[in-house]
């Protein structure tokens, strides 16, 4: 069995999760604070990929990043970046597609923390950033872990978006889910079975791991 699609999938899921951690956490925190109209709009956009057919999202990304016009052309001419049929494109699409899985659990965890926790920290002279890092973040650990694992697992399972924007280029955009489809098309059921089994096993272990962790984790008094 050619393992490249598996490695590519894990790499894609890993990078996507890291990118979403880096800007998803502050974004979730910002969204968890006082509501405003603009936040409702942003939240709606973030949540859209949950219900939108992946092919629709993939189609718009394909149009937006086509190197022949608009943003795609500009990115290509100025930065020599091409998001269509490239690994970078897969990362971008996955970040958008998996965003709700990172943002919403973390956002609701922040919202469930009593307001007095940050207030207490402020009266001790601590800045918002110190409060975020030393008080808020450590107290949402279980939700954060769930968000990380769900984001990773969800990216493993991507198909439609990846196929639309990345196609099926071996070693570049051909991730495991595409390899399954491709193998079936070529009547190579053995390969399809192998790829499927690996994806199934990884996903199962991840999800069961989170369940076990959250069950045995000492319950925080806030929950």
């Amino acid at each position: 069995m050619d393992l490249t699609p598996i490695w590519l999938t894990l790499k894609l899921a890993g990078i996507t999760t890291l990118v979403l951690l880096a800007f998803g956490l502050p974004l979730a925190w910002w969204l968890s604070k006082k509501r405003s109209f603009i936040k409702i709009i942003i939240e709606a956009i973030i949540t859209m990929p949950l219900v939108l057919p992946p092919s629709v999202l993939g189609f718009y990304l394909l149009l937006a990043f086509s190197p022949r016009h608009g943003i795609g052309k500009w990115l290509h001419d100025v930065f020599n970046l091409q998001f269509v049929f490239s690994f970078e494109g897969l990362v971008l699409a996955s970040v958008i597609y998996s965003m709700p899985f990172m943002i919403s659990p973390v956002k609701s965890a922040f919202q469930q923390l009593p307001a007095s926790l940050s207030q207490a920290s402020y009266t001790l002279g601590k800045s918002e950033w110190q409060t975020f890092r030393q008080v808020l973040l450590p107290n949402i650990k279980p939700s954060l872990l769930t968000a990380i694992v769900l984001t990773f697992a969800h990216t493993l399972g991507e198909f439609g978006v990846v196929l639309m924007i990345g196609g099926n280029i071996p070693g570049v955009t051909r991730v495991a889910s595409i390899a399954v489809y491709d193998s079936v098309e070529q009547m190579d059921y053995t390969s399809a079975n192998n790829y499927s089994l690996v994806l199934f096993a990884i996903t199962f272990i991840l999800v069961i791991g989170v369940f076990i962790y959250n069950k045995y984790q000492v319950k925080s008094p806030l929950e």
């Binding site: 007095s116 926790l117 920290s121 402020y122 800045s127 008080v135 450590p138 107290n139």
Partner: peptide, 20 residues
């Protein structure tokens, strides 16, 4: 002034202790 500038000692009714 911000709470950080005022820095009063504040004892909250729900204690607001940090669980971590």
């Amino acid at each position: 002034l911000s709470p950080q500038q005022r820095m009063p000692g504040f004892v909250f009714q729900d204690y607001a202790l940090f669980p971590n």
